[in-house]
Amino acid sequence: MENHLTESHEVVNEGRTVEEAIESALARLGATRDEVEVEVLEEGSKGVLGLVGAKQARVLVRKRDGGQATKAKIEEMLSNLLKLMEISAQVSVDVKDDIHLVRIDTAGVDGLLIGKKGQNLEALEHLARRMVGKQLKRSVRLQIDVGGYRERRTNALKNKALSMAAKVKASNKEMQVEPLPASERRIIHLALANDPQVRTYTVGDGDLKSVVIAPQRRSRSNGEARKGSGE
């Protein structure tokens, strides 16, 4: 259980209770509670009458780095990746609410990185998440934008959702949006979440599912209503 790093950033610690385990881990790290994140590996239990089957609580306590190490890793890996693709680009990372917002600015080849319907950007994002996550041994939340594409796309999807919802209300018939990745389906769901006259649900399989926009009150029940499921 000893940590062999000269400057330890995380320790696994045991104790009679989770709280005790955290307390002594903090002492070992020389950190305060709000400087760390805690993962409970084993809840621990007192056992019967505190005698039989007592189990130690085990926690992993990790010093938060304020995102600096993660940020540096993201910048390093994406820069290398782009260099190998022979794309000259600037990579910058901002951290907001624990999400790493990556901005890539290329010298005139934004389109190449975005791809048809943003598929190259999706691929880049997926790989970056996997690669950085693997290197840091934990999952990393990151979103990549190239040349303001995400923002334009978000607005376009919102408008599409609203205009389709208007049609659905007028016709009282449900409509299906083209297959989209999860992050973009979310935009459709959110855009219509507060509209009491329509509801949205997801159909399909795989990465690209479709959102269906349906009238809230159905004219007659024909079994169609139960089609599909949530995300």
Binding site: M85, G115, Q119, A123, L127
Partner: peptide, 22 residues
């Protein structure tokens, strides 16, 4: 390969983009 081949597909997508450029 990844779940449902997503990682493999992503590698192919980027490889294609890089190849197209070249």
């Amino acid at each position: 390969i990844g779940k449902r081949g997503r990682t493999a597909r992503s590698i192919r997508t980027l490889l294609n983009a890089a190849a197209t450029k070249a």
